[in-house]
Amino acid sequence: MENKKSLDKRLIAVIVGLVLIIMALSFFLLFRKDTSDIGDGGTPLIGYATEAKVMLDQDSLQAAMDEAMKNAKDGNIALLYKDNAYSTNGVDFDCYIVNSASNKYDMFLTIYADDALTDQIFLSGLVPPGSGFEQISLDRALETGDHTVGVVLTQVDTDETGAQVIKHQVAHTMEFHVTK
């Protein structure tokens, strides 16, 4: 009888532990930040020379350069991907795009169908360093053929208030192939 009681207690402990783990996991996933809510953190545009402004005096120019040098020290992003992705229906692509383990921040991925990076066809959730994508599903189908798409990687940091803000952005292209 004592053995039976001891067994029951262990069973309850295991079940309670299981429930707690699942609840914690659900809480994490439920309240994890969606990328669409992330502030731009003063990074309004994609590119290497956003908002190039006129500097008419030496002090302002040097101050701007010093600030840029300071930002550049922490600003490198490691890209890790394969240049080609393949699909048979234009929507679901086999690919290899990774947030390199050497990066410091989570990132999300935005893919554009046009050179000007205005025709968005994919927006991911946040991906931690060391993880990535082997399959993605686009918002709309690409036609049969070869497409050069723009891939924007956006790293996200948490500011002093706990809000997630855009930290860094880089853009590169990939080749998406759709076959029947």
């Binding site: 996933l29 439920l30 994890r32 930040k33 969606d34 990074t43 545009l45 994609i46 590119g47 290497y48 020379a49 956003t50 908002e51 190039a52 402004k53 006129v54 500097m55 120019l61 701007a64 350069m65 600030e67 840029a68 930002n71 550049a72 600003g75 490198n76 992003i77 490691a78 890209l79 890790l80 991907y81 394969k82 240049d83 290899y96 990774v98 390199s100 991911s124 959730g125 946040l126 991906v127 060391g130 993880s131 990535g132 994508f133 082997e134 399959q135 993605i136 599903s137 790293q155 930290k167 860094h168 952005q169 880089v170 590169h172």
Partner: peptide, 29 residues
């Protein structure tokens, strides 16, 4: 909140991917 297809890349992947270090968006004057 987490896209389908997100995986942890293991060392088993044999193809050689492109690996490049690039600077973030910057500023110009």
């Amino acid at each position: 909140s987490t896209p389908a297809g997100q995986v942890t890349i293991s060392g088993a992947y044999k193809d050689i991917p492109i690996s490049v270090l690039v600077p973030e968006s910057g500023t110009a004057q």
